[in-house]
Every structure is written in C-alpha cells, then in structure tokens.
Computed example of a mutant assay.
Amino acid sequence: MLERVFEWLLWNSRFVVLSAVVASLLVAFGIFVMTSVDAWALLEHIAHYSMAVLTQEQRADLHAEIVAHAVSIVDGYLLATILLIFALGLYELFISKIDIAGESKGSRVLFIRSLDELKDRLAKVILMILVVSFFERSLAMHVGTFVDLLYLAIGIALVALALFLSHRASAGHEDGREEH
C-alpha cells in the first residue's frame, strides 16, 4: 500500500513541469509582443529613411541603424520561438501528447518525440540566434586594421563551420544514421 502511494506521488510529480510550460509560454508571448512593437518602430525608421532629406553620411548611418534593428527583431522572434518550442516539448514529453496537434494538417516541426529531439531543435534555434547576433555585431564593427579584418574573416569562417556541422548532423539524423 505504501509503495503504491509513493509510486502515485512519484508519477504525478511530473506535473511540476507545468510551471515551466506556463512560464515559458507567457515569456514567449511577451517577447513576441515586445518584438512586434519593435518591428512597428522599425517601420517608422524606414519611413524616415525613405522620405527625409539626408546627407550621404546621415543616410549611411541611418541605413546601418535600420539593418541592425532588423537583425535585432529577427533575434527577438527566434528567442520567442525557442521558448515556444521548449514549452510544447516539455508538455509533450512529461505531461501528454497534444491531441489537436496530431489532427493538424500543418507543419510537424513542433512534434517532439524525445528529449534528444527537443535538445536538437533548441540547439538549432540557439545556433541561429548566435549567427544573427554575430551578424549584428559585425555590422557595428569598425574594420580599421588588417588584424580587425582577419578577426572578422575568422569569425565568419567559424560561423560557416558551425552551420555546416549542424546541417551535416541533421542530415545524418534524418537519414536514420548518426554521424560522428
């Protein structure tokens, strides 16, 4: 009898994961809202860029600011997406399959069958955030010397290598084999 009660408590302790699911969803929605507000503000900058009479230097500065802002928006949406994937994955792994998702004719990208699959999906989105952040920082970087240019080139090569290895690992998983 004691064993049965303990096992019931142990099994139902998985519902504590609901706190992480709900919190992740709320934060994801919040970041979607914040980023959407930023996107509307960016549209105002773009309107100013296209209608204002600016010097060539002012136009170049505003252009760089707009591109950096656009990259920041992509970054925000990617972060919100990570939280959404995380919430859905935790729910499916620990609580229950989402029945309505199985009936959906839409994308299967949010179906999570294992913890490893959840980690892989999160890792890909995190890698994309890192790529976007690197791009954003490289836009702001002032290349004044050959060493600066060399560092930028090395950074680009490392980002390309990370993307290549990520794609290669994904292709191995999709083919049903794991590459090492």
Rank of each mutant, 00 (worst) to 15 (best):
F94Y: 02
Y77H: 06
L25D: 11
A64H: 04
L78R: 01
Q56D: 15
F32Q: 01
A52S: 15
L78S: 07
A41N: 14
S19W: 13
E65L: 03
L79T: 10
L18R: 03
Q58S: 12
L54E: 11
Y77E: 02
L88E: 13
L78N: 00
H63M: 10
G76V: 05
L54W: 09
S50V: 10
W40I: 08
E92H: 08
A47E: 12
A60V: 04
E92M: 14
L88R: 13
L93D: 07
Y49R: 14
L18Q: 05
S24F: 10
A60T: 08
S50E: 13
A68D: 05
D38P: 01
A68H: 05
A47H: 04
Y49H: 14
I82E: 08
F32I: 06
L26S: 12
H69C: 00
H45K: 15
V27Q: 08
L84D: 02
A80N: 11
Y91W: 01
A28Y: 07
V71M: 11
D61S: 12
H69D: 07
L83H: 10
H69N: 09
I46F: 05
S36L: 13
V21A: 04
M51D: 13
I73F: 02
L84W: 12
Y91L: 10
A39E: 11
A23H: 02
A28W: 05
A52F: 02
S72C: 03
A87Y: 00
H69W: 04
T81H: 14
A23M: 14
Y91N: 00
A39Y: 10
G76R: 02
V27I: 15
F94K: 01
D61L: 12
D75P: 02
A60C: 01
V33M: 05
G89D: 08
V74D: 00
A23I: 15
D38F: 07
V37T: 02
F29I: 15
A68P: 00
L26T: 12
L83K: 06
V21R: 07
F32V: 09
I66S: 11
G30S: 01
I82A: 08
A80W: 09
H69F: 14
E44N: 12
A23F: 11
D61P: 04
F86K: 03
A68Y: 00
L18S: 07
E44M: 07
A64R: 14
S72T: 04
S19R: 07
L88P: 00
E57R: 12
S19K: 11
G30V: 01
L84T: 15
V71D: 06
E44T: 10
L83S: 09
V37F: 13
D38N: 13
H63V: 00
I73V: 15
F94Q: 01
